[in-house]
């Protein structure tokens, strides 16, 4: 890591941690008033996070889009950006940060433990199609995380309502379950479309790099599994009427396939061509 990058990265992570803790407190104790302040804290962390990316860009001379750390750095940035964007568009959605920020922290922390060393951009990664591929991967990942977060809040509200307590059910009254249900589907649709573009761009890139559009490499296979999983979710929703609780659990469970794709495959598999050896 570059000096300023490290500084910004760790301060951003600490701010995200405070924002996460605060959001969990707000949801558990039903204290809605702190949420806008936490959104400001999140925005400050995001500004520093952006600074960390800029510092890395200046130090390396290229966008950070290779290896686990840079995936975590940029993936986390897109998740927080998505969270802030939906919170800016609709204030009640600030509470989605309760699930999105911990997810961003998780992947950023994992990346930081892997390979944060500065490195020149490998020739294998110098491709226009890679830029498209990675950009849409992050967009879809951000959307899927939002769908998961909407699912988490839906379940929390449902649970609170079942207990007839004064917790989440009443405090976050603007977020009607029906609205959360629609939002889950909307984020899913956005993620599914961007995911499809990601796979298509990756195939075109693969053709130029390895000579075939599709080679059943573990990463390719798992990205197809992930896309099919979300495709099945759309099918279940549109044709079989899956909504509410079942659909929330589906959105939470399906995110595991994306997490595996981003980080798990390089741990599980040694034979994937997607592990771009630097040396």
């Amino acid at each position: 890591m570059a000096t300023y990058e490290a500084l910004f990265f760790w301060i951003a992570l600490v701010l995200y941690a405070f924002a996460s803790g605060g959001n969990i407190y707000a949801v558990v104790f039903g204290n809605q008033r702190v949420v806008p302040r936490l959104a400001l804290l999140l925005a400050l962390g995001f500004a520093l996070h952006t600074g960390a990316i800029a510092a890395r860009y200046i130090a390396q001379g290229h966008m950070p889009w290779s290896a686990d750390y840079e995936n975590g750095l940029m993936g986390g940035w897109f998740i927080i950006l998505s969270t802030l964007y939906v919170a800016w568009r609709q204030k009640p959605l600030q509470v989605l940060a309760v699930a999105t920020v911990p997810t961003a922290m998780l992947i950023m922390g994992y990346g930081a433990m892997r390979n944060p060393a500065l490195a020149p951009l490998a020739a294998t990664l110098k491709s226009f199609w890679l830029a498209i591929h990675v950009y849409f991967a992050w967009l879809s990942f951000g959307a899927y995380v939002l769908a998961m977060a909407a699912g988490v809040v839906y379940l929390l509200k449902e649970r609170a309502a079942a207990r007839q307590g004064s917790g989440t059910g009443q405090r976050f009254a603007e977020l009607a379950p029906e609205r959360l249900d629609d939002l889950m589907f909307k984020y899913l649709v956005f993620g599914f479309i961007t995911n499809a573009i990601m796979i298509a761009a990756g195939s075109i890139w693969a053709k130029d790099l390895w000579g075939a559009y599709w080679s059943w490499d573990p990463i390719e296979t798992w990205s197809l599994i992930s896309w099919l999983m979300y495709g099945a979710a759309i099918h279940l929703r549109v044709t079989m009427g899956w909504r509410g609780t079942r659909f929330s659990w589906l959105m939470i469970g399906a995110l595991a396939t994306v997490l595996v794709n981003f980080f798990g495959v390089s741990i599980l598999m040694k034979s994937t061509v997607h592990v771009f050896k630097l040396a």
Binding site: P218, T221, I225, L228, G231, H235, T239, M240
Partner: peptide, 16 residues
């Protein structure tokens, strides 16, 4: 359709 998608998911998982 759902069962076939699930079957493909299972087969791809085996391949993975």
């Amino acid at each position: 359709t759902m069962w076939l998608i699930l079957a493909l998911l299972a087969l791809f998982s085996v391949g993975f």
